[in-house]
């Protein structure tokens, strides 16, 4: 016969396992969240995209605005060479950004893109981007970098303007792996 003590211990074990599992679940939320983002196309940041449909939709225009941000104390200048372009969905477009290191030390930075409105993200396909790799600039060095992208023609009709915004972060210490 199972005594009360035994069954109590059994219950306790089960509940402890639940607690441990929930601790793991807290961490699992991160890949889980990223998976959801991947499936829905939100926050797909640093990988080249595959394009499914390159049909150019000449019947409509989309304005793409380019924006740049420098985080915290990164002593660089960073700006797009054009502030906006007007293109058709499906059209392959290349734009240039320029960075310059104004400090007296070599600095490595990583750019992270972001999109407004959010919904545009899943239709904004970057084939090449300086944000796919870290950028190291020697003192005083400047560099022009390209972004090659296509807006997929599935873009909802009510989105007429998309802002592509990059934030450059300093990657501190060469040994530290970014993202």
């Amino acid at each position: 016969m199972v005594t009360l003590t035994q069954s109590n211990l059994q219950t306790m074990r089960k509940l402890f396992i639940v607690a441990l599992a929930m601790f793991g679940f807290g961490f699992a939320l991160i890949p889980f969240y990223q998976k959801i983002c991947e499936v829905t196309g939100v926050n797909l940041l640093l990988k080249p995209a595959e394009i499914s449909n390159t049909q150019v939709d000449v019947t409509r225009f989309v304005t793409i605005e380019f924006d740049s941000n420098l985080r915290s104390s990164l002593p660089w200048t960073f700006k797009p060479l054009e502030t906006s372009v007007r293109i058709h969905p499906g059209e392959l477009t290349t734009v240039l950004y320029e960075i310059r290191n104004t400090s007296t030390r070599a600095i490595t930075g990583q750019a992270v893109p972001s999109y407004g409105p959010n919904v545009a993200e899943q239709y904004f396909k970057k084939l090449d981007c300086f944000c796919f790799t870290q950028q190291t600039l020697q003192p005083g060095e400047s560099r022009q970098m390209q972004v090659v992208f296509v807006i997929e023609s599935g873009l909802p009709k009510d989105v007429g303007t998309i802002t592509l915004s990059y934030s450059f972060f300093e990657v501190e210490g060469a040994a530290k792996k970014a993202g």
Binding site: A19, M22, F23, G26
Partner: peptide, 14 residues
């Protein structure tokens, strides 16, 4: 409590 306190622990550990 058993379900969510560990999640808080996870968040603050992070």
């Amino acid at each position: 409590l058993i379900a969510v306190m560990p999640v808080l622990a996870g968040a603050i550990t992070m």
